[in-house]
Simulated assay, not measured.
Amino acid sequence: MTEASADTGMRPRELAPGQRTCVWVAGTDSAPPRLVHETSHLLLEAPNFGPDGRSLLLNGAGRLWRLELGDGRAAEPKEVPLHGVPPINNDHVVSPDGRHVYLSGMDGHLYRAPLSGGAGTRLTGEDGSLHFLHGIGPDGGTLAYVAIPRGTGGGPGRLALMPAEGGPGRLVDTGDGHLDGPEYAPDGRWILFNSEAFTTAPGHAQIVRMPAGGGPLERLVDSETVDWFPHLSPDGRFATYLSFPAGTLGHPADLDVTVHLVSTEDWRTPLRSFPLFGGQGTLNVNGWSPDSSRFAFVSYPVS
């Protein structure tokens, strides 16, 4: 979810003078991360792997882009042509069957479009909420999103579920505190997200999960950092998440942050950690490859 998008009509982010977009792919092994694309012309965010494992989908300038991967640097990104879809933010997911991409528009609504491009369909109605997409069930039938009442200027987010074909959503009780990034586990048993329910410190998000059918929250990470956006690998063995400095409010851009790789058997002990300058746009959506061997993220260094 974009930091200012609790009010519709926001503009896409842009690179600051001297700033670059750096798109990285790292593995679950010990090899160093690979810089696959670098540009000082377009701020790209939130990579999803395509279903073939050979491309990434990213948003930038309110549009969706495909970045083809090779053995070296990737080629220049190509726009995925979408019709009937407003400018999008960095909340987008690929359907399990690889046919569609689900998108959050900057108008606060959710959309579905063919992954190869084409006409989009609005899925959400005028229910008084802004909708920020983050997850889709493994059977492709349910979307998990964050609902925020319109006109609140960024009030607490609430977990909501809705049919992937469109229709009314329903709120899920997750207790007190803002949450974000709800995403289904690959087996469909859990929904993971970051929540402030376990603390009274403002903004102190921690990684949690809850049964997909509803139930108490289980805290997966207990840290002094502000932790956002848990993403599980397709085989369920690994996860990534993003840590902000203690005391951070929300998930802003342009901070020293860390991408963590963990085993889902031990969330508290990172297997690998990647410090970088970024935050917003670095790891908002699930960036795992279909074979669970690699994941993508973005940094925004300033010269």
Rank of each mutant, 00 (worst) to 15 (best):
Y184V: 13
H178T: 02
D187G: 14
L179W: 10
L171Q: 13
G166L: 04
A164M: 02
G188L: 04
Y184A: 03
T199H: 11
R189P: 13
T199P: 03
E165Y: 06
T199A: 11
G169S: 02
L179G: 09
E183N: 15
I191K: 01
F193S: 00
E165C: 13
W190V: 01
P202D: 13
P186N: 08
G166D: 10
T199N: 14
H204P: 13
Y184Q: 00
A197G: 10
S195Q: 06
T200E: 15
G188S: 15
P168Y: 05
P182G: 10
A197P: 03
P202V: 12
L161P: 09
M162K: 08
P182C: 00
N194M: 01
G167F: 15
L179Y: 07
G169T: 03
F193T: 01
G175I: 05
N194L: 07
R189C: 12
I191G: 00
V172D: 04
F193A: 01
T174K: 11
H204K: 09
T200M: 07
G175R: 11
G167V: 14
A197F: 07
G177T: 00
E183K: 10
D173Y: 09
L161W: 15
G167Q: 13
M162C: 07
T174G: 06
D176S: 11
N194G: 10
P168C: 12
L171T: 10
P168R: 12
L192S: 13
G167D: 07
T199W: 07
N194V: 02
E183S: 14
G175L: 08
I191A: 07
A185F: 06
M162I: 02
D180K: 04
P163F: 12
D187E: 14
M162V: 05
G166R: 07
N194C: 12
G181C: 07
P182K: 03
H204F: 06
F193Q: 12
P182T: 02
E196Y: 05
T200K: 14
G188Y: 08
P182Y: 04
T199S: 06
T200F: 15
P163A: 01
H204A: 10
Y184F: 15
G177S: 00
F198T: 09
P202I: 11
E165I: 06
L171K: 14
L179F: 04
Y184N: 10
D187F: 07
N194I: 15
A201M: 01
P168I: 15
E183F: 00
A197W: 06
R170H: 14
P168T: 12
I191F: 02
H204E: 14
L161V: 12
D180Q: 04
P202A: 03
N194D: 05
G166S: 14
E165M: 08
R189S: 15
G188N: 12
R189M: 13
A201S: 13
G188M: 05
R189K: 06
L161S: 03
P182L: 10
R189N: 10
W190A: 03
P202E: 05
R170S: 09
I191C: 03
P186M: 05
H178S: 01
D187M: 13
T199G: 07
R189I: 11
G181H: 09
L161E: 15
A185P: 03
S195E: 13
T174N: 05
Y184G: 02
F193V: 03
E165R: 15
V172M: 09
L179Q: 00
